[in-house]
Computed example of a mutant assay.
Amino acid sequence: MALDITISDELREEGIARELVNRIQNLRKDSGLDVTDKIKLSIQQHEAINGAVEKHKGYIGAQTLAAEVKLVEKCNESTSVTVELETDLETAIFIEKL
C-alpha cells in the first residue's frame, strides 16, 4: 500500500497560515513588543497566500494578538519586513502597535 503524500489546498493554506503566525511572532519579538501588546497587521497580497490569509484571518489574529488583519496591495518598504514563507514565496508584513 502506497502512502498518499499529496497535499490538499486546505492543508497547504493551513500551513501557510501557521508559517505566517510564526513569522509575525518573531517580528513582534524583534520589534520589542510585549506579549500582551495588541497590533494591527498588514500583509502584502500574493497570489499564493491570499486565500490562506482570508480563510484563516481569525486564527492569525488570535495567535498574534492582531485586532485587525488585512491584505494590502503594497506594504511600505521602509516600515515593512519581507518574510520568506516557503522557497520562492515571499511577502511583506507590517505590524503597527495599537
Rank of each mutant, 00 (worst) to 15 (best):
N50Y: 00
A66E: 07
K57H: 04
A48E: 10
L65K: 14
V35N: 07
A48M: 11
A2N: 10
R12V: 06
H56K: 09
I24Y: 00
D88I: 02
A67N: 14
E77N: 12
T91H: 08
L3N: 14
E13L: 09
L41Y: 01
V35H: 04
R28C: 07
E13T: 01
S8N: 07
D37L: 03
L98H: 03
D30L: 14
K97R: 15
S8A: 14
E10S: 15
T87C: 05
A17P: 12
I95E: 05
V83D: 04
E19C: 03
L11R: 07
T82P: 06
K57G: 06
L3S: 10
V69I: 11
I16Y: 00
Y59H: 08
E68I: 10
G15M: 15
Q45C: 06
K57M: 12
A92W: 00
D34V: 00
R28L: 08
G61E: 08
V21C: 10
I5H: 05
Y59Q: 11
F94L: 15
Y59T: 08
Q44I: 00
T6E: 11
I43E: 00
V35A: 11
I49H: 09
I16S: 01
E90C: 11
Q44A: 08
Q45F: 06
Q45L: 07
L71I: 15
I7E: 08
G61S: 09
H46F: 02
E77S: 14
Q63I: 06
E13F: 05
G15W: 01
A92E: 09
D88V: 06
D4G: 05
K70G: 05
T64L: 10
K97M: 14
L85Q: 05
I60D: 05
Q25K: 13
V72G: 06
V35E: 07
H46A: 11
I5S: 10
I43Y: 00
E77Q: 13
Q44T: 00
I49F: 04
I60V: 12
E13M: 14
T87R: 13
L27N: 02
Q45K: 12
K70V: 15
L71E: 01
I95H: 03
A92I: 01
H56W: 05
T36Y: 01
A62I: 07
E96M: 13
E10H: 09
T79K: 14
E73W: 00
I95A: 07
L65W: 02
Y59L: 15
E54C: 04
A52N: 04
I49P: 10
L41F: 04
V83C: 10
K29E: 11
R12K: 15
D34R: 14
D4A: 06
K74F: 07
M1L: 08
E90Y: 08
A66M: 11
D37Q: 02
E96T: 12
E96Y: 04
L71S: 05
M1T: 12
D30K: 15
Q25M: 13
E47L: 04
D34M: 06
A67T: 13
L20A: 03
L65T: 07
A17V: 04
F94H: 12
F94Q: 13
I39R: 10
K74Y: 02
V83F: 03
L33E: 01
Q63Y: 03
L11K: 11
L71T: 09
L98Y: 01
A52H: 02
A52D: 02
R28K: 10
C75H: 06
R23Q: 14
I39L: 11
E14I: 02
S42F: 03
A2F: 11
S31E: 03
R12P: 05
S78W: 01
V72N: 07
G58F: 07
D37K: 01
N76Y: 02
